[in-house]
Amino acid sequence: MTLPRFELDDVCVRHDGCTVLRVDHLVLDERRIAVVGANGSGKSTLLRLLDGLVAPETGSVRLGALDTVRDGRQVRQQVGFCFQDPADQIVMPVVADDIAFGLKNRGVPLAGRDAQVAAVLDRFGIGHLAQRTAATLSGGEKQLVALAAVLVCGPATVLFDEPTGTLDLARSLRFAELLADLDVQAVVATHDLDLLDGFDRVLVLDHGRVVADDAPGPALTAYRDLAVWAARC
């Protein structure tokens, strides 16, 4: 299976006059890619670049032949985004309606929509939540609903921004199992290093720069060294 290929060239993102991310050249085409780094190191900005939610001040971000800013519409047909707080991305008041929201925006007819919603609810074992209101869900349930709402659209890549940040241990373990079973490319920004078991590649960000890019073992060693050094300063 050919995996999607993201390519960043000479990318600079600035916010309020400060550079928040600077990448000279980066290609992402592995199945499981993690992005780690301290708070404010540019992890979320990198993910938003890949989905075209943030436009670089200079340079380009491409998914295959598509420019993520110019061809944002086509890019978002292929890329799903799971935000740090799942409550932020649940738009519709009722669970089933929210899962159908993305399909409706893509023009899927009602009959097909209902069947796909039922299938994804069944896949995640949350059929009983279909008519529940979002406000009555627990944090773990919201996470599952948000993930189902992304996956029902059939993306080739899913971007996860600190997916276990609001989950307890049991829910985190459950999420790790779900992630391992996903048959799509996943780019995961996280502080949860236990989640990275089985990942192909880890990028370590520091002050908006990629300071290590390797297999999980050596990359996490570099990240720990960086954290120890930062704690001593």
Binding site: D51, L53, G72, R73, F101, N105, R106
Partner: peptide, 9 residues
């Protein structure tokens, strides 16, 4: 999130 979920597309 609304942009990412293709509402405006």
């Amino acid at each position: 999130a609304i942009v990412a979920r293709s509402f405006f597309d």
